[in-house]
Amino acid sequence: MLTRQEVLKIAQLARLSLTDAEVAEYQKRLGRVIEYMKDLDSLSLPKGAFVRHVPLDAPRFREDEARQWPDREAIVANAPLAEENQFLLPTVLEKET
């Protein structure tokens, strides 16, 4: 079980609004999974093991050549709200993060 405060703190970091019922449920569910993961605690692990998942022969770079992407309208078209080809957010913008 996680505490209510713990769940609320994580939800805030992740920007997820939760109902009280959800908070209670995630106290249990998150707690259950995190508890299960304790099986890793028994392992003695080598220091600094690094897993490179990217194949060694993957390209490291692209060349610096500019190309105009042709379908930019299709991108702004998906905006919930747009104005003058810009994404629009409702007013009431408080301070920055």
Partner: peptide, 23 residues
Amino acid sequence: SVESLYSRSRGEGFGKEVKLRIM
């Protein structure tokens, strides 16, 4: 507010399992 736009959009838009894994 922008903060509530984020958390409400995400709270409404994501399902139970996704929220669990994000958290």
